[in-house]
């Protein structure tokens, strides 16, 4: 009787230990997943180039102290030995590298991982009538949930101020949408998985007046 009871206790204890071990193993191996537009240099670089230009200067998000960090040749470089210049030279200058695009991507999607997952689930694959990105985004797609978008649109307090204007009147210095703000189109189209390269490229020209073409 006692022997049988002892056996039952030993077996139960062993099973409990095994279960605990399995549970511990599975918890230790669990990873926080982020569902977001997949990364590739081709799909992210249009957005990345715009982010470096408008947001990633060294006085703004091209700084390690920011929660949202941006790397690129016109701002903060990723690797020691690189210089802040897009002009290739022996001193370490050169175009934004794929590693820098990746680092910016991770910073962006990892800023609010659960929100990014929710936004992607509603925006993924949305298409316009001609097969391009859908803009304005359809009702299922909510880019405004992201703090990054809120700050750029001026609906969330932002030290850099409002950068995007969806409906006039627009603050001083921000172009009126004609009919849309290309910066917003760039961001939203990327969130839909179909980045609008034209909108992103145009966004990198806003605000600059070149006096002379003969520049470094």
């Amino acid at each position: 009787m006692l022997g049988r009871l002892f056996t039952i206790l030993v077996v139960s204890a062993a099973a409990a230990c095994a279960a605990l071990g399995v549970a511990s193993c599975s918890i230790a191996n669990q990873r926080i997943g982020i569902e977001a537009p997949p990364f590739s240099q081709a799909s992210f670089s249009p957005l990345g180039d715009y982010l470096v230009y408008r947001c990633g200067t060294i006085d703004c998000h091209g700084a390690p102290g920011r929660n949202f960090r941006i790397w690129g040749c016109d701002g903060m470089r990723l690797n020691a030995g690189q210089q802040v210049t897009c002009v290739p030279d022996d001193a370490g200058g050169g175009s934004t590298t794929v590693q820098e695009y990746q680092a910016t991507y991770r910073s962006l999607v990892g800023l609010e991982p659960q929100v990014m997952t929710a936004v992607w689930s509603g925006c993924e694959g949305q298409q316009g009538p001609e097969g391009g990105a859908a803009y304005p985004p359809p009702t299922a797609c909510h880019p405004e949930l992201l703090t990054m978008v809120q700050k750029a649109r001026g609906t969330e307090k932002h030290k850099g101020g409002q950068l995007i204007c969806l409906t006039p009147p627009c603050p001083a210095g921000i172009p009126d949408p004609h009919p849309y703000d290309p910066q917003d189109v760039c961001i939203v189209s990327w969130l839909e998985g179909n980045v609008d390269q034209t909108a992103c490229q145009y966004s990198t020209t806003i605000g600059i007046t070149m006096v002379d073409a003969a520049t470094e």
């Binding site: 230009y53 200067t57 030290k159 605000g207 006096v211 520049t215």
Partner: peptide
Amino acid sequence: GQAMITLDNRD
């Protein structure tokens, strides 16, 4: 001379 081809965003 030189021209700055990027923005001074806030500083």
